[in-house]
Amino acid sequence: MTTMRLVFVGGGISYRALFNWIHPAMYVPTMLLGPIFQILFFVYLGRYNGLQSDSFFVVGNAVQMSGMAGVFASTMSIANERQFGTLAPLLATPAARLPIFVGRMLPVAANGLVVSAFGFCIGSLLLGFRPPLSSIPALALVVVVSVFSCTAFGFTLGSFGMRARDVFLISNLAYYVMWLFCGVNVPLSALPGWMATIGRGLPFTHGIAAARALAVGASLGSVSGQVLKELAIGSVYLIVAFGLFRAFEVEGRRRASLETY
């Protein structure tokens, strides 16, 4: 009973406490308005270069947009505890760590889904993105899996926030790197081998590929391989993220670093 409350009630409260952009005045410009232009920009750049259809860029960027939550909100969920000096009080409580951790991931993932959905709507309204109606449920599923995967990845980065001070540097770099390596605007086949290899180990890559196929009418069965890979990648990151969280907690007690800021 307490576990459920810790996950949902606790997770919700800590999200409000730590997510820097929670106020609508921050949220709307940062997570919704800015990314509109990201989609517009890449679609127009694609048109200018006479490349793939608009759909290619809309799908790629609409999925990637959720990374603003998945990468940055995740980092904030952990790293901001240091800023407020609440990491020590948090870890001094007897609460089990896994529910705390999962509780923090849920709002972030929900946030990512909202952003992605918004991106797809913009693509539809402004750029005429029209996937076949029958594909939409499958598309939604792929987006959910991708968002989960990115959130887990984000929390892996965020766990370093328990140890390192400038973790936002890492998350910024990771966010930009994902733009390039995950096939958001350039298909993996056009990238040098090493980039594509790294990309295949990152979230989004498989999800975006699957979503693109679905958007032009492929069946869920035909992309199931990609979807499962995305799910697997997310699961691995989840385990690593939690492992790091616990490891750094123990290390923090040993090295007396829980309160350094």
Partner: peptide, 14 residues
Amino acid sequence: YANALSNMLEFPVL
């Protein structure tokens, strides 16, 4: 909430 503006204006200006 100036940060929101900074975050938002990157791509539009581009």
